[in-house]
Design a protein around this nucleic acid. Structure first.
Lengths: 255, 255
DNA sequence: CGGCAAGTTGAGCCAGGTCAACTCCGGTGG
DNA sequence: CCACCGGAGTTGACCTGGCTCAACTTGCCG
């Protein structure tokens, strides 16, 4: 019975959003999971440290943006992925922790699930298992998609792809306005570019009237097909911004 | 009873390697799965087409290298991931097929598993479920790790990382010789660079006596620490056959 | 052994990194 | 209220790692 859910869970998107994990649980399962789990709040910039992860390796995001950040020896930083409400992270594999640190990019509310209860639920509740499987599968999908973007796309194309990623992942129905849930600096780290380049690319898209940057965290898509073509790597369109310059190459520069 | 396994399965690494999926099945489960599945061979370069994937979305690799290749509109190609023996792919999510095409980079032998039987096994056999979960989780891990590599690393660093990826994934015990299971051209697509650059980087590593390229498909690691430092983005070392300067203590994590 | 694809080498160039200067904005304290 | 501060974002100028193109060599398969 929904009305019997623990009060804390009533306010948690993992429960009140019908497609999320906790919404699939029976009253008894939810009670048991709740009893052995911990809902915590994390401030922006804060990192989940390793020894706590050791004891609480299953994380379910209620709200906010958590990211996986990786530090190279000489200080270069990369954000490999970010996680939003509804995502379930399984950090039990030791190797997963070598990927980097989990850091809050905004205030985050998440639930540390008891691994034992989680596992038990997976074994007895097919609908919950499906949700968990889909979450993991979705993470793999996004990581692959992101890797494709990083491998061969140019800066402008990566940014356009990113806008679509945000659009796909945002819950709201508004498809024209897209929320950029992270700051420019973090966005740059996610896309493997410099903040300066991110800024230049936004300006470029805006000058071509493809998007409108309202404030730093919301953009409006003005020309969806154009944006899509850029995201898909259609270089012909990208060149159109430029004045179709004379095709002559001046060869008189040598002495 | 192992001796009762279908003859075809006896020869399949998914069964005879103890850590793989089919090895975890009871005799009855294996029989049932075998009866409703199809072991197929695929030639190099051949692509698994979509309508077949629709009916047979669960693939288990017996041998060979399968990759996920993504084509941009203007012809740029990316290999987002490659899959080796033991890997289980779940292409049921429609979105997964938008990531690109599954293409054999070498002769591949794989088993198309019946989704129904597969699902049923996941619900009743915890050990098999764990294997499947780990396979998926490993794919997510590698994709994230790969994305980190692509985002901020330079060509030489990416190549060094790739050598370690191959090393981790290869089954044999020999840790000094690493098999490069794919060709230069494919490797370039995987690392988001040009074949020319791959070639130059191999030569560079060889000139510094860090690796020895025996033939195109096997390398020998001569200086493991140096290779590791490069893979981890230690630019000091990269700046040409460097004298091992004062040993910097790398302090990764601190309060 | 011939033919073709894969891989390598070299020379030149450009997208995006780097550096430095500047603006913008929210918070803080006088 | 304003002055001040610090961090984020933006802009411009310059520089370089790796892409491009072209020529060459090597390896593979009939």
């Amino acid at each position: 019975m929904k009305s019997k859910a623990p009060e804390q869970c009533q306010l948690c998107s993992l429960y009140y959003e019908a497609e999320n994990f906790c919404a699939k649980l029976s009253g008894r399962e939810l009670d048991e999971l709740h009893a052995r789990s911990r809902l915590v709040s994390i401030k922006r910039g804060q990192m989940l440290n390793d020894d706590v992860l050791e004891r609480w390796p299953i994380l379910a995001i209620d709200s906010g943006v958590l990211c996986l950040r990786n530090l190279l020896h000489d200080g270069r930083r990369t954000i490999a992925a970010f996680f939003l409400r509804g995502d379930i992270l399984d950090m039990r594999a030791a190797e997963n922790r070598r990927l980097g640190d989990l850091i809050a990019l905004s205030p985050v509310s998440l639930c540390r699930l008891s691994p034992e209860v989680f596992d038990h639920i997976l074994s007895v509740n097919p609908r919950a298992r499906t949700v968990a499987w889909k979450s993991l599968s979705g993470q793999a999908y996004r990581a692959l998609s992101h890797a494709s973007d990083l491998a061969k796309k140019q800066a402008l194309e990566k940014l356009a792809s990113f806008v679509f990623e945000c659009r796909r992942r945002q819950k709201g129905l508004n498809r024209e306005h897209v929320e950029i849930p992270i700051r420019r600096r973090d966005l740059a780290e996610y896309l493997g570019m410099q903040p300066e380049t991110v800024s230049r690319c936004f300006r470029d898209l805006e000058e071509r009237a493809i998007i409108k940057v309202s404030d730093l965290s919301v953009i409006r898509i003005l020309d969806l097909p154009a944006l899509r073509r850029i995201a898909n790597g259609d270089r012909v369109l990208q060149a159109l911004g430029q004045v179709p310059d004379p095709v002559f190459k001046i060869v008189t520069k040598e002495a």
